[in-house]
Design a protein around this nucleic acid. Structure first.
Length: 620
DNA sequence: GCAAGGTC
């Protein structure tokens, strides 16, 4: 019996074949320099000792497109909603390697990531294999289930294969089709429109792209920009008092915060002033803690790098990827924020004890201070949280980005395995007349994880005066103050990542690319203000979003995340079996088609919005 | 020339 095993990426095929073979593999090259074919023997239950070849693809190997008679300029863009589609081989070397290797095999075993895209890639692998070996049948495919590369887990996966989940395959196929139809039709339509009317100077060969992810991303940026620009500060008033004891003066804050009616506040204040003293109505002393961080996901890594190092999401992921390829970090694209219970966390900590800066801390964890990491609620069932897998001295790394990312991942991991920081909070409430005023103070008692995690701060505040519950104290000073509401800030990259993540726009692997895309399309720019990077829309980006906002879509706006979210929900239903692919394609395409019709009918509005933005800008 | 999703 001969079995062909295929993983989603070269690193997995290498690791898995190493485990299954007990280190005894013969390596053959393929025509692709990254993809290797490993030959070894393995005893599959019920089948016996088999000759195994393990290889991999590199992500998708086929792609979907329109036939040439529907290529750019050859048909009305609106026809792309119903045009036929064709499958193309997008990575010929890798595709043919599968066909060749399948020729001599009786069985195919899929080792792609256990997520939706992985299931589809598994099916692509099957079609490549069938090309070389028509006797293979989809029902006979073995599909291994694994979520990390720990030895016993991989052996267990090899011995207990299940079948390919065709629901997931159909869901991905559905996403691909919708993304292509919507993206291509709107891109061609908008490009034609902007060209024809010359409302905006497009570079030669330049175009206006529309995508189901890039536009909601742009929409978030424009929305925030408008809220900042249209913000009108509002005046408010509040009372603030101070009391003095043992030569310590302390300010107490009004529990009602502030009011917007000055006369109303004056009335309250007058009533308070009838009293010379305030009474301590509450004195609470309680233990408090600052939680150690959750295990690290891709999105969190990108937000952190943007916040702490002003590093773009793309650069952060690139650096993490390089570190992964060199064997220093685990797989950097993961949504999982809980470590698998079987993982040997202490072995990971052990490797970091040799570092001169945090090695001592790592040793202390091993000598009794170790705590099990908190478990978040996300699990992509494919990859563990990002963690260091091997030790490397920072000075041995290639560039500043890699050093920063490696250090962050290590410190984050050590922090995860530490105790929360502990403190004591004191809260005092005073009643003055009918109003309450409060203040609190914190004493940090044990820093714990903070010692290894300098990115977070938690400091003791100045202690409150030694007041006792029930004590009456003279109000030393009081004042009625005026303030005004402050505008929101422009969008930071880390906020944008969080928004995309929360709204299901893009995946951990693509969020950075979508942001990069709207920058390279000229829809938004990054600006630095007070040492912070903000993302603000260009005139073109504003014009596009405002144009769509001017059209009266019934709740299916092209610049908002709702349609994409609806698609995502439908895809989930295909996976769970409550909807079929054809039904979803029809349902979602119908909505986008309606939106397309409305856009085409009202193209003058789209153009007018862009003109309006440009005129407004040139006049200021 | 268009999308978004894998991965290098």
């Amino acid at each position: 019996m001969k079995i062909l095993c295929v993983a989603e990426k070269p690193s997995i095929s290498k690791a898995v074949s190493h485990i299954l073979s007990g280190g005894k593999t013969k390596v053959r090259n393929s025509r692709n320099k990254y993809v290797k074919n490993y030959d070894f023997k393995f005893d599959f239950p019920g089948v016996g000792l088999c000759d195994v070849t393990m290889t991999s693809v590199m992500g998708h190997i086929t792609n979907i497109d329109f036939p040439t008679q529907f290529s750019w300029g050859r048909c009305n863009p609106g026809r792309l909603f119903d045009a036929p589609t064709i499958d193309n081989v997008s990575n010929k070397e890798v595709y043919e390697n599968i066909s060749n290797e399948a020729r001599r095999c009786n069985r195919l075993m899929i080792w792609t990531d256990c997520d939706r895209e992985g299931e589809f890639i598994g099916h692509e692998i099957f079609s490549a294999a069938v090309k070389g070996n028509p006797s293979l049948r989809v029902e006979d495919i073995w599909r291994s289930q694994f979520s990390h590369l720990e030895r016993s887990h991989i052996l267990q996966a090899a011995r207990n294969p299940i079948r390919l989940d065709m629901n997931s395959v159909h869901a991905v196929r559905c996403r691909m089709e919708i993304d292509l139809r919507v993206g291509a039709s709107f891109t061609r339509f908008l490009t034609d429109l902007y060209r024809r009317t010359q409302v905006f100077p497009l570079e030669k060969g330049g175009f206006i792209s529309y995508g189901t992810c890039q536009f909601p991303t742009l929409g978030f940026v424009v929305d925030r920009y408008n809220r900042v620009k249209r913000f009108i500060p509002e005046k408010f008033w509040y009372i603030s008092i101070t009391v003095k004891k043992d030569n310590k003066t302390e300010t107490f804050h009004w529990t009602k915060n502030h009011v917007f009616d000055r006369l109303y506040l004056a009335l309250i204040y007058q009533n308070c002033l009838k009293n010379d003293n305030a009474e301590v109505v509450q004195l609470i002393e309680r233990p408090t803690s600052k939680y150690r961080p959750l295990p690290l996901t891709t999105v969190e890594l990108q937000k952190n790098c943007s916040m702490y190092f002003k590093m773009s999401a793309k650069r952060a992921l690139d650096a993490a990827e390089k570190l992964y390829n060199k064997g220093f970090l685990s797989y950097p694209r993961t949504e999982t924020d809980r470590f698998p219970p079987t993982m040997d966390l202490k072995a990971v900590i052990q490797k970091q004890t040799q570092n001169s800066t945090w090695g001592q801390y790592a040793s202390e964890l091993l000598n009794g201070k170790f705590r099990s990491p908190r478990a978040g609620s996300h699990d992509d069932k494919a990859h563990p949280p990002i963690h260091p897998v091997n030790f490397v001295k920072l000075e041995m790394l290639d560039n500043a980005d890699e050093k920063k990312v490696y250090e962050l991942v290590v410190r984050r991991f050590l922090a995860c395995c530490s105790e929360d920081a502990k403190g004591k909070e004191t809260k005092i409430s005073l009643r003055w007349g009918a109003e309450e005023f409060t203040n609190s103070a914190i004493v940090v008692l044990e820093r714990n994880f903070l010692d290894v995690y300098p990115y977070m701060t938690w400091k003791s505040t100045t202690p409150l005066p030694p007041l006792l519950k029930g004590e009456t104290i003279k109000v030393a000073s009081s004042v009625m103050k005026e303030g005004k509401t402050s505008p929101p800030q422009h969008m930071t990259e880390s906020e944008l990542i969080a928004l995309m993540d929360a709204n299901g726009i893009g995946t951990d692997a693509t969020i950075a690319e979508h942001i990069d895309k709207i920058i390279s399309r000229g829809y938004v720019v990054k600006v630095r203000k007070n040492k912070n990077d903000f993302i603000i829309p260009s005139e073109l980006g504003m014009g596009l979003i405002e144009g769509f906002n001017d059209l009266e879509f019934d709740n299916l706006s092209l610049s908002k995340p709702f349609l994409r979210k609806r698609l995502e929900n439908c895809l989930q239903e295909i996976v769970s079996g409550t909807k079929v692919k054809e039904q979803v394609v029809q349902e979602i395409i119908f909505l986008y088609k309606q939106a397309f019709g409305l856009s085409a009918q009202n193209s003058t509005k789209l153009i007018a919005a862009c003109r309006r933005i440009m005129d407004a800008n040139s006049s200021t």
